[in-house]
Amino acid sequence: MKLVSKHIILKTEALSIGYKSKKSQTIVASNINIELFKGELVGLIGANGIGKSTLLRTLSKVQPDLNGTILVHNKNVAQYNSTELAKTLSLVLTEQIVSKNLSVFELVALGRQPYTNWVGNLTKNDINIVNQSINQTNIEELKHKRCFELSDGQLQKVMIARALAQDTDLIILDEPTTHLDVYHKTSILKLLQKMTKDSKKTILFSSHEIDLTIQLCDKLIIMTDGKVLIDTPENHIKQGNFNSLFPKDLITFNKTTKTFKIKK
């Protein structure tokens, strides 16, 4: 075996996620142990309601964990202050932005907020990084358009450019391909793949596109009832992990075509 010491960006140890109220707590998933390395594209798949969003929200400190630890750059996420975390981890969420009157440049430039001064003035360096992010995501021709003029696919790219401008080692995206056709889904995922290759970002995203993620991702996290498994797509296929993904009454995973087929 080849010994490669790769830099761990994010690591969880015996993490439990869920919701806490004063009297009770609802555990969505427990004993989650995952490691994300630098420059990896990682897909998170699982059935509806299994807790993908809860996991992503917990990892990004939007909601508190129930137990265990989350380490980002080997430091407990609880010890980060909000600005430090914003410089390490950026988010693309499913929710719509409030003001669609922002121009694309303005929106991407908001990604520089953790670095700007108290009124948020952009320095030359900031503007360079914003332009770079716009170039990398191939949205130069949209630069001066306003967000309400964009299609869903274009807006998603702009939101990714904004996360890129935030210049973080880790980018987390919650279902970045929903509402898009298969061509635009692929183009978004290809873009994410390119970002991991070119700028060595670690990207974690949730998705329902199992066939696309198998083809594109370095690793896949499969969430099922009771278990959270992380491995390369090939190993997942070998071990038959895809079959535990959904109830078995309607569909089965075909190892040769690497897709789900309807039971005859």
């Binding site: 990004s60 939007v62 909000s82 600005t83 975390l85 914003a86 410089k87 981890l89 950026s90 988010l91 969420l93 929710e95 719509q96 932005i97 409030v98 003001s99 922002l102 929106l107 908001l110 990604g111 907020q113 953790p114 948020g120 935030q166």
Partner: peptide
Amino acid sequence: NTLLLGENYAKSLGV
């Protein structure tokens, strides 16, 4: 200005 993106985005930007 950050709130123009919504509260969750603002939070993720360190606000």
